[in-house]
């Protein structure tokens, strides 16, 4: 595994995440969009396999365990809920307490359960790849004040946690720490610590604000620093993404991804030429895995034989 991590900065979990944030964001937007809103069994199978593989690549064995033990029961329950409450559909299989159970609602339950698990796994990759600094960069120019607020809130959280420790230590010196006295006393002391934190936090907020103002916050002509730049490999990958996305939108426009469950199931299966659109989707979903694999091969080639 060290061979993979050797190639890029230590803080990126894999080769794909070292690409430009725009590329990563576009990838997740497209995959989530097609998974959440389409419920096409073939598309769903493709995206499920891809994000499953990718999450295993990112999180190792932990991901496999999580996906199987936590997600499988949820998916089964979700698949069962729909046929119990939705009686739409024309193919009645049997009656349960005088309510018809239809083939269509069972099929819909299974695909929506599958979509749910896929979205959860995709978001677990999203959390790992699109870290807050990348999101901040993406939206920083579009909505500068809001992204500043977002990043400051994010930074305040660990800062306040550290401050709580300091306050608790100071209170410990005068015997007013949350581990002293009976239960009531402890709760009182705990609340006292929080109260001190809030006073400090608000006072500190104003000081931070004044200090920012003194340094020219909000004046015109200020630039912002970013560590992300467009390299040639980024442009190539973005062009690939754009081309595949164009194919996907074309397929969408031509109705190649149609999947209707109610009143009767009507699904456009990949056959003949339309299989190309599904291939495009598979390629798109597998991009991170392809990129990581390629990076691995290149790195192993470049390594001097010793």
């Amino acid at each position: 595994m060290w061979a993979v991590t050797g190639m890029f900065q230590k803080n990126s979990p894999d080769a794909f995440s070292s690409y430009h944030p725009v590329i990563l964001f576009l990838y997740f937007c497209v995959v989530l969009f097609f998974t959440m809103f389409f419920l096409h069994p073939v598309l769903l199978a493709i995206s499920f396999c891809s994000v499953f593989l990718y999450s295993v690549q990112l999180n190792g064995r932990k991901a496999i365990r999580f996906n199987i033990f936590c997600m499988l029961p949820v998916t089964v329950i979700v698949s069962l809920i729909n046929p119990l409450f939705s009686h739409a559909g024309v193919t009645i299989l049997f009656y349960l307490n005088e309510n018809p159970v239809t083939l269509e609602s069972i099929a819909f339950g299974i695909v929506s359960g599958g979509a749910f698990i896929t979205v959860i796994i995709a978001f677990s990759c999203f959390n790992k790849i699109l870290t807050s600094d990348k999101l901040m960069y993406l939206f920083g120019r579009l909505i500068p004040v809001l992204s500043l607020m977002f990043s400051m809130t994010l930074r305040f959280v660990p800062r306040y946690k550290a401050q709580i420790k300091k306050i608790a230590n100071a209170q410990l010196c005068i015997g007013m720490d949350a581990s002293h006295g009976n239960l009531l006393q402890r709760v009182k002391n705990g609340i006292q610590i929080l109260s001190i934190l809030i006073t400090w936090a608000l006072e500190n907020a104003i000081e931070t604000a004044d200090s920012m103002k003194a340094r020219g916050f909000g004046l015109k002509g200020r630039t912002s620093f970013s560590v992300f730049s467009w390299k040639r490999r980024d442009k190539t990958l973005l062009a690939t993404e754009a081309a595949l996305l164009f194919a996907l939108l074309l397929g969408l426009g031509l109705g190649k991804f149609e999947s209707v469950y109610f009143p009767a199931i009507r699904i456009a299966w990949p056959e003949g030429k339309s299989a190309a659109f599904y291939l495009a989707y598979a390629l798109f979903c597998l991009l991170p895995i392809i990129v990581n694999r390629r990076e691995n091969i290149v790195w192993n080639k470049l390594k001097s034989p010793d």
Partner: peptide, 23 residues
């Protein structure tokens, strides 16, 4: 907030209250 322009004190106050909620 975007349109009111950056008014540091108000902004940071909102941030720190949100951070307290998160904590």
């Amino acid at each position: 907030f975007e349109q009111r322009g950056p008014r540091a004190r108000e902004i940071i106050l909102v941030c720190s209250l949100s951070a307290i909620a998160v904590i």
